[in-house]
């Protein structure tokens, strides 16, 4: 009763990046509980990338295969994972708080009749009890909870649990399982058009403000975003959205979207508090502005004072070299 089940995700037979974060979080719990981590992935066949998971702390990686598991099948997934969780007597079950995990974890929890802490940013074991931290009230407060039922079910906010390498290899096995046909069927996945990453989901957001001077100049930011190889989205301040330079969907701030990317680059944005409300939970904030007194420098981790039309192209050039 001290083992942890880590539920991974694959898409089209390839393990999703968030899976290594799930293993990392599960390992943290298992270390506290002095138990093992069993990683579970449901797929139609073999999955690429699972051999690396031992390196993140999985003692065992189990692939459950079924012809219906190629795409997310909510009812079959729920049944198979709940059965496995019950049979294995795990102390905790860890999901990713991804689109799939957020849908699946509550179903599994309800099926097992236990509580769920969704979208957590930290997990720990304190005095034998599983505790978590979850941002609530739009990130304006942190809620610390303990999960008293067994298994404790949690889902981890993506991009938060940095995968930690361990000098350890886990075993792997593949088991074909039977699963009931579900009533809910994912019939297709429409891939988003290339380069249309949403600001709310992109790991890197580059936002422009009035300092860009005119709409055509956003090209400078788009080039920087492109240099990041499809991981970056271009956002905008309210002032420029209001002026009709950029669509409302791109607006970051109190009346726009709240973002918390790994890297937020504010270009030519003075940093009105309305803008800060939408991006202050970003992991790292960089500000580029010619006014050294701009309030944005107070929240930025790193600031560059200067003409954005000189600084940004130089940055683009260097990023291209880095990714070249």
């Amino acid at each position: 009763m001290s083992d942890v089940l880590a539920v991974l995700e694959q898409r089209e037979g390839a393990l999703r990046k968030v899976s290594s974060e799930v293993v990392t979080g599960a390992r943290r719990l298992a270390d506290g509980l002095v138990g093992r981590v069993e990683a579970l992935v449901l797929a139609a066949g073999s999955v690429q990338g699972i051999d690396h998971l031992g390196g993140f702390g999985a003692d065992q990686v189990v692939t459950l295969t079924n012809g219906a598991f190629g795409r997310y099948a909510p009812e079959a997934y729920t049944r198979v994972i709940a059965d496995r969780a019950q049979a294995g007597g795990y102390r905790a079950v860890v999901f990713a708080a991804s689109a799939t995990g957020r849908d699946l974890a509550p179903r599994v929890a309800a099926r097992l009749g236990v509580g769920l802490a969704q979208d957590v940013t930290d997990v720990a074991v304190e005095g034998g009890a599983v505790t978590v931290i979850r941002p609530v009230y739009a990130g304006k407060a942190l809620l610390k909870l303990t999960l008293t039922a067994t298994p404790a079910i949690v889902s981890l906010r993506p991009n938060v649990f940095t995968p930690v390498q361990r000098p350890k290899a886990g075993s792997a096995e593949t088991v074909a399982v039977h699963a009931p046909a579900g009533r809910v069927v994912v019939t297709a996945i429409k891939a988003a058009a290339a380069g249309t990453l949403d600001v709310a989901e992109a790991p890197i957001v580059i936002s422009g403000g009035r300092g860009l001077k005119e709409p055509a100049n956003f090209k400078v930011l788009e080039e920087l975003a492109a240099a990041f190889g499809g991981r970056a989205a271009v956002g905008a301040s309210r002032a420029v959205v209001d002026a009709g330079w950029r669509p409302h969907a791109d607006q970051v701030g109190q009346t726009g979207k709240t973002v918390s990317p790994t890297l937020y680059i504010a270009v030519g944005i003075s940093g009105a508090i309305q803008h800060l409300a939408g991006m202050r939970t970003s992991k790292v904030i960089v500000a580029i502005n010619k006014d050294k007194d701009a309030p944005i420098f107070k929240v930025a981790d790193y600031g560059v004072v200067g003409d954005l039309f000189e600084v940004v192209p130089r940055l683009t050039e260097e990023i291209k070299k880095l990714h070249g």
């Binding site: 409302h248 607006q251 009346t255 009105a272 508090i273």
Partner: peptide, 17 residues
């Protein structure tokens, strides 16, 4: 505080459009 800070503290969330 600046005027913009003030507007924010006034709770103004008027639809931009």
């Amino acid at each position: 505080f600046s005027k913009v800070d003030g507007v924010f503290k006034a709770g103004n969330a008027t639809r931009d459009t």
